[in-house]
Design a protein around this nucleic acid. Sequence first.
DNA 1: CTACATCCTCTAGCGACTAGAGGAGCAAGA
DNA 2: TCTTGCTCCTCTAGTCGCTAGAGGATGTAG
Lengths: 141, 141
Amino acid sequence: MSEQISIGEAARRSGVKVPTIRYYEQIGLLPAPERTEGNRRNYRADEVQRLAFIRHSRELGFGIDAIKTLLVLQDNPNQPCATADHIAKDRLRDVEQRIRSLNALKLELETMVEECSHGRVKECRVIETLAHHDRCVHQTH
Amino acid sequence: MSEQISIGEAARRSGVKVPTIRYYEQIGLLPAPERTEGNRRNYRADEVQRLAFIRHSRELGFGIDAIKTLLVLQDNPNQPCATADHIAKDRLRDVEQRIRSLNALKLELETMVEECSHGRVKECRVIETLAHHDRCVHQTH
DNA sequence: CTACATCCTCTAGCGACTAGAGGAGCAAGA
DNA sequence: TCTTGCTCCTCTAGTCGCTAGAGGATGTAG
């Protein structure tokens, strides 16, 4: 007899919220666990591990589809890991792109905020800049 | 008589897509324009300007509610601009936070990808790292 | 006159959850 | 034994900011 792990306990251990766990089950990301006599979900330790894997992957920004693929790979340890590598590299490129674009936004917002003279809206640099894109620091966007 | 600006033309000039313009009208972000005899939307130049303002604001990541407030401010030039300043500063803080967290992700992903020996899944650092959060470079997340 | 582009309204879908209704089960204390 | 209160169940609908598609009307160029 192995330990009884309720959905609440699984949530605590994995860091995934209770409704989110049920949602993952619903979309087929997590297999439906056994139920107790009272119809409650009863998880095994390896299912909680799987949840932790999912959570970490989500934190790193992987989409549900990518995670499905990664989970299949995890279940097939003798496969070459090229696919996993590819998914991670795609994600890395994506993150780098986001950082670049957020840095551009940051610069723009900083300029807006710095040049605001805290007077009336009609002289406000914030509103002014939003209205006239061509006066941006960088026209990259 | 001023120029006739169709929704398609407004889209071209503002850089906002046609269905998105209709959506903005529906949610009350953009006032409903006049119609031609054939029931087509007919925009004025200042409405197209407003669209450009909205677009730029969205590009900078402001939410619809924030943009509504900013538009009200733009329409009231004698108000103090403290609110606009506040909204922009909030957004700046948000962007800075995102950049920080994306940089952490980037580091983690880089480590995963670099340490992958391109062998089998069972020795793959990518899968390994996802499964065991505690082996992360930074436990910040 | 005939294509074809553009426009109209309406509904539904996306991703990844989150919130809430309405009810059942279960453990612990009085 | 009863009651309190927590956790659990299912189900539906909402979030944000669009985007896609159906099915039809109108406008324009050759």
